[in-house]
Design a protein around this nucleic acid. Sequence first.
DNA 1: GTTAGCACTCCTCCTCTATGAGTGCCAAAA
DNA 2: TTTTGGCACTCATAGAGGAGGAGTGCTAAC
Lengths: 350, 350
Amino acid sequence: MSRMSQSLELTERAQHLLKVLIERYIDEGQPVGSRALAREAGLNLSPATVRNVMADLEEMGLVTSPHTSAGRVPTVKGYRLFIDSLLTVKPLDQELIRRLWEDLEDLEDPQELLETASHLLARITRMAGVVTLPQRRQIAFQHIEFLPLSGGRVLVILVTDDQEVHNRIIRPATPLTPAQLQQAANYLNAHLSGRRLTEIRAALVNEVRAAGRELQSLLEMAQRLFSSEALEEDCLVAGQTNLMSFAELSDWSRLRELFEIFEEKRNLIHLLDQCIEAEGVQIFIGEESGYQPLEQCSLVTRTYTVGDRVLGVLGVIGPTRMHYERVIPLVDVTARLLSTALNQKITSPS
Amino acid sequence: MSRMSQSLELTERAQHLLKVLIERYIDEGQPVGSRALAREAGLNLSPATVRNVMADLEEMGLVTSPHTSAGRVPTVKGYRLFIDSLLTVKPLDQELIRRLWEDLEDLEDPQELLETASHLLARITRMAGVVTLPQRRQIAFQHIEFLPLSGGRVLVILVTDDQEVHNRIIRPATPLTPAQLQQAANYLNAHLSGRRLTEIRAALVNEVRAAGRELQSLLEMAQRLFSSEALEEDCLVAGQTNLMSFAELSDWSRLRELFEIFEEKRNLIHLLDQCIEAEGVQIFIGEESGYQPLEQCSLVTRTYTVGDRVLGVLGVIGPTRMHYERVIPLVDVTARLLSTALNQKITSPS
DNA sequence: GTTAGCACTCCTCCTCTATGAGTGCCAAAA
DNA sequence: TTTTGGCACTCATAGAGGAGGAGTGCTAAC
């Protein structure tokens, strides 16, 4: 009974029809009518029967029609069901995996590694690739070096245990001799190595009090160095222009809003930060992200790690109407490969 | 006689009318008709007279009409004449200059300085701001430092005399002790300080031959470090999305091409590099740039310097229909302020 | 040299209509 | 009870036709 399916369960048939509908919609981008669906579904049903099912699906909020005499289009809820329980994920081509690995394995610089990863995602999906830089609060201090510059300024070189290098120029209140700088570096390297940046920030407050006169000024400097502002989150975006080819984003003001979140990255970073908790591949469909400019977009992400620590997130942004069955495994594999590559850098033989 | 003006010279009146026409077109974005122009010009001319002049201007290629019954629109040649000899540049508001300087003076990091400059240009003009990073071939080696990392890898920190810091991780063929690294750094600092990076690249070839065994491997490394690939040109772009508001760029595919040159920066860098030769403010109008995606855009640039060396270029990209009388002085002043700020970093009291 | 007049062009906007895709509902068939 | 064919209905889309208007070039008069 068609009324029955409205309550809780979807019949096998309704599920199958929904699946075929969404697959076709993803392919064509046009609302799918009952005639076409009946033909495509391979169930030997008449369009009229399909229409009945569609009415049920619509009542459950899984599909809508843009207007009375158009076919049906999946809703966010429909996509959700599709992805969670109907999707047949295509395993990634081995050849493609090999090529991905080739592009990543030789890169020494972690920054370059992240850049390449986002570009690969963008190029393969023809959508936008995103990667967050390693979360500062996750990474640990490894080594610091002070280099005196002209004008009493000091170049601070901070190496963190994800093998990233951070530079910062500071100007201490009172000038310091090279010897003092060396002493300070030794001190910090001895005392802080291996500890998280966030811990250090807290610890430094006490150190400043305890330290001798000449170190005082330098420690205050270091404090500023570890302040949250100096170690801001950031992310990389590649292939934004790919998104201009999609008809569903061709609304003028929408597209502008979308590109603004790529330029003013704050919101994007915040959104990606939310994905860092998830295990496996995380998907936000349309409005699920909570960001109005991404209403028409989906975000597919996965975390990347070093050892057992989650460093950041990588993923793809594209129209809700994307080939999830391809994108999901691609994001999955790329994140794994990136993790492997990063691990290699850090644990490679001495 | 109107036929006369066709040959070489433009009458006073024709020049004035062209000026008013372009000013009005820049303001309104609509083709300017003879009636409106006659009113606006303040010369007590009838529309018919204006039409005669317009016909002359059209014959000289300074204006065109999109179709028979539209008004006139300036051509590139028209803009050129306008900018070169008709434009009355508005001097920049002192208050604005003060605010610009406030935003720039406190920044320690040159990179940050450049970023801020491009953002300021974008925000004030509501168009796109661009800055090239300092030209590698212009900057000189100041200091190098080697930091041993795990896995036999070495972090190279290269400070150049524009106070930029470049990091690079390399993996020498044979492992090196910290002492050897220190020795190598001393050697390089003693021998190469103050010399241009391009010179160094050449010089290193000989050094490698002359050097002792243990240095050999490190010098080869350094050679790779100074290779052109490692010191690639780059540029920063800000406010690209501002360009989406302009009606004349609202052609779908055009806009996409435009954004592609911002993403794949190579062409943009190449174009900006051409501006580095020019003294004062350099302007490319529409097709003058030679880049098809910039057909509808103008580029206003000026070099920035440290001492007497030209380091790079900064500027604004927007529709040809832009308020040159404001943009030109803004670019001019911003480039000067940026130069001053950079100079301060380098020559400030020790 | 300048101007008024006039015919002409051509873009823009509006309305109207035909077309067709797709629907919901109902009654008959399975 | 489920499925199906039939039918009236809705509504987006495209195209034709026409009115309106802005602006032009040309010519003849000032």
